[in-house]
Every structure is written in C-alpha cells, then in structure tokens.
Write a protein that binds this DNA or RNA. Structure first.
Ligand SMILES: [Mn+2]
Ligand SMILES: [Mn+2]
Ligand SMILES: [Zn+2]
Ligand SMILES: [Zn+2]
Lengths: 138, 138
DNA sequence: ACAGCAGTTTAGAATCGTTATAATGTAGAA
DNA sequence: TTCTACATTATAACGATTCTAAACTGCTGT
C-alpha cells in the first residue's frame, strides 16, 4: 500500500472524504519517518509554508479533532499552555525539554519495567505513562 | 508552630501579606490532612460556600499563581480542559479517574522502581512522573 | 487623630486557544 | 447539467486565564 493510499484509508476510516485540504493535512502528519508531536499552531504554520492554497484554521481543528476521536492521533498534556498531539498513538513515554518545549518519545526498552503495586478496587487501568522533564545543564 | 502560623509563613515567603482573603484561601488549600488536588473553579466554589465575604476570582487566581511560582503549589496537566493544582509539591505519581475526573496521589512504594535507561546528552532530568489513567470496570 | 501611601482587592475588560455557526463552494451521482 | 450531500471558510461565540484601573485597607510618621 502506498503512503497516499494509507492516508486515504485513515481519512475514510474516520468517515472523512479525502479532499485536497485533508490530504495536505494528513501528509504533514503521517508522511514522515518519525513520530510527530505538534500543536495546532505548529501544524497551521507548516501548512501555510508548504501549501500554496491556505487551509483555514477551522479545517485544521476539525480534521485533527476527528482524527483524534477516531484514534489516529493522541492528545498529550504537558502544561496548560497549549495542547500537543502525537502521531504515535501507542501507550508510550515522553521526554519534555523545558528549554525548547520539544516532546520526544521513549519506549519500554528505555525504562525499567513498571509495576503498579497499589490496587484500585473496581477500576481498570487504561494507561500507564511516564513523563520525564529535562532541561539544559548548568 | 500552629497551622495558622504556617499559613502566614507560606504567604510571607511568597512576598504576600497575610490578608484575610489570602488566609482564607490558604486555609482551604493547606489546612487539611491529605493532599488537595483542585482546579480554580473547585477552589472558588469551596471559598464561596465556606466564607461569608466573597473573594473575587482575580484574588484567587493571583494567590494561586504566586503560591505556585514560589513552589507552594504544583501544576498538574491531565488534559487540555482545565488546569489542576496540587498541594503536594513533591515529585510523585497520580491516578486519574476518567469517570469522576478525580486525581489521587500514589508514591514510590506503590510502584516498582523507575530507571531511565536512555541517556540524554547535555540534559538534566528534572522530574520523572507517572500518570495512570483508570476507569470503571464494565 | 489623621494624612499619606504602599499594597490589596475587585469588577470588568482583554486575550487567546478552541468550538460553533452559517454562508458559500465543490464534486460525485443521476 | 442539475441535484445534493458534504466541505471549507470567515467569523462569531465561548471559556479559562490574565490584565487593568479604580476603589479600598491598614500601616506609618507626624
Ligand atoms: Mn504553564
Ligand atoms: Mn481534552
Ligand atoms: Zn509521543
Ligand atoms: Zn498529587
């Protein structure tokens, strides 16, 4: 399956027609090697630079919102200032660089195994995620 | 040191005079046995119920803000909807109940020891915190 | 006591990220 | 081509947070 076909599939599985605006958005989000962590304003800026025809903020918000609700994007909360999204939808951990505001993934092999010893009666664990905040030395 | 003296001390160490509004706020925040996790609207509601004289939202925001910047409160981000604050300022872990939106602390003894194996050159680790999201069974 | 003054509280305005609305545009089906 | 459902867009509305500027409080020095 070509990458373009995959993008179309993601959109169709979200009940979104693969229009040219939505495809542009999906190319920025998913046509890349590494996980992409972004805010809406990051994404809007990239789209404005890359694309001749402007895509309205409303379309960007709508598309990201639907992709998130269909499980193709994940929301990450670091601080209250702005919402981050993540193209890596798996349960995973992050470094947050307080100097650059950059988010980076890390994986189970980069951390000792986590076992929760406290039991929560009547509750089910949905996710266990670690946030490591880092900053420049000195 | 009495609890009231401690409240005054917290305020003074934040360069805030212990006025009656600020003391009311601090009583709600710090005069309790267990850690308190709250949003500004939680706090405002409690203050409105408890106190005869209303305290303006501006004063609540200002006081919480300064207490946070002086390290007497900690900000916790769970989702983008609203900012949580925490009277437990230590590095610690949380359960978040997705049904009730309640935050609960848990401690190092409730989880296996966490070792980060990935190295981040030139960076210093400021905090390592785990967020466990839980929801009702069924 | 009282004027002066620094610091405080407050209501409301401003801001900003996000969501909703409603008018206009587009493209596939018949 | 016409019809029609769906998309896109500009802009308004919204809600949390921050800012502002005016009124208030309570020391301080006389
Ligand atoms: Mn913040
Ligand atoms: Mn949310
Ligand atoms: Zn990630
Ligand atoms: Zn806590």
């Amino acid at each position: 399956m070509t990458i373009e076909q995959e993008l179309v599939k993601k959109l169709r599985s979200s009940n979104l027609r693969p229009t040219k605006q939505r495809l542009e958005i999906c190319r920025v989000l998913f046509d890349r090697q590494k996980t992409f962590h972004f805010t809406i304003s990051d994404l809007a800026q990239i789209l404005n630079e890359k694309s001749k025809n402007k895509i309205s903020l409303a379309t960007i918000y709508n598309t990201v919102d639907v992709l998130k609700s269909k499980g193709h994007l994940k929301e990450i909360s670091i601080n209250s200032d702005k919402t981050f999204f993540d193209t890596n939808i798996s349960n995973h951990h992050h470094f947050f660089n307080e100097n650059t505001n950059e988010l980076t993934d890390f994986y189970d092999e980069d951390i000792s195994q986590i076992k929760i010893k406290k039991n929560i009666p009547g509750k089910k664990i949905k996710s266990v995620e670690v946030l490591v905040k880092v900053a420049n030395n000195n």
